[in-house]
Amino acid sequence: MLRMKTRIGVVAALALGTCLLARGQALSGIRPGRSIAQPAAVEYLYPEQVTVAAGKTSEVTLHFRIAQGLHINSHQPGEKELIPTTFSIPEGFGVRLDAASYPEGTEFTLPLDPETKLSVYTGEFTIQAKIVATQGNHLVEAKLRFQACDKDACMPPKTITVPIDVIGK
């Protein structure tokens, strides 16, 4: 009987310990930053993985979504000061970006300045990337640079990582 009680006590102590550990992890998992305060303006949707012929140019269609109520400049926003949406693949991933085709932007005017026509993307958009991969499995961290606004205010330019698993066969 005493042995039984001891067993129960040990199990209960372990459970409490687990609980306290979980609390500690919760505390250490939180880091200050702006990401919690501001939702992502642009999100990469898919594909997560593509298989291409190694050493040959292949076309991949990348899908993105812009948060509701926001727009980002198109690749050719018109005015020199405006920051264009640009896709790139840094060196060192075994995958080279040959060219990228961007969609035409849609015309957008701010209510208080109807004469200035901006070229923007809203909702979902795609970028056609022509890539050349070497043989093997490459976890590519491509980049998308953009600058988002709503009708009254603009957020600073941002670069997000576009993770794609490229398999060169």
Binding site: R7, I8, V11, A12, A15, L16, T18, C19, A22, R23, A26, L27
Partner: peptide, 19 residues
Amino acid sequence: AVLFILAVFAWAGWANWEY
């Protein structure tokens, strides 16, 4: 004892989420 342990785990989960 089993019920008690399950209750402790449930409480731990809730406490963690709340925290």
